[in-house]
């Protein structure tokens, strides 16, 4: 296969331009804000008991690792967890990003979860004191979704 000289030159130019250029400070700040906004939407969906809104914040193939049960890796499993959880209690929780790190099309966040829930069955109020690690993946439209999520309690 003979390749015309201009093709070789073009490939060289593209190859040189493939050298990684880091994101600007403004880019990182914008991404961090966007990830924080998704965390805010998770909080809102929890407190509204909105199953579909909560599930929609997760990426295809997302893996959720809650305490006390095996990890789940399908959107339907996420939906069932949300239905069960939101059906058992009315949440009044706050999700506060403790740190957000942007790495290309991925981000990881450490989140503090506080507030309380009111049990539907008997009206008891339970304090929530938990922590989370969430991995976010940038979508083709530039938005972010949760790709991996694990959490646990701060006390027994």
């Amino acid at each position: 296969m003979r390749i015309a000289p201009f093709t070789v030159a073009a490939a060289l130019i593209v190859g040189l331009s493939c050298a990684p250029t880091g994101p600007s400070t403004a880019d990182i700040a914008a991404d961090s804000s966007a990830v924080a906004a998704v965390i805010g939407k998770l909080q809102a969906a929890n407190n509204a008991g909105d199953v579909e809104a909560w599930v929609a914040l997760f990426d295809d193939g997302a893996v959720y690792m809650p305490p006390g049960s095996p990890a789940v890796a399908t959107r339907e499993s996420l939906r069932q967890i949300a239905i069960a959880g939101f059906g058992q209690a009315q949440a009044n929780v706050t999700l506060t990003p403790v740190e957000i790190t942007i790495a290309g099309d991925w981000a990881f966040a450490r989140v503090a979860v506080g507030g309380d829930v009111t049990l539907t069955a008997d009206g008891r109020n339970l304090r929530i004191d938990m922590k989370e690690i969430a991995i976010f993946h940038r979508q083709s439209d530039g938005g972010w979704r949760v790709a991996r999520l694990i959490n646990n309690r701060n006390t027994e």
Binding site: P66, P67, R110, K131, I133, I150, N151
Partner: peptide
């Protein structure tokens, strides 16, 4: 740098 874990056993 960061390490989190939890049990898969039901309470």
């Amino acid at each position: 740098a960061r390490d989190m874990w939890n049990t898969s056993r039901p309470p």
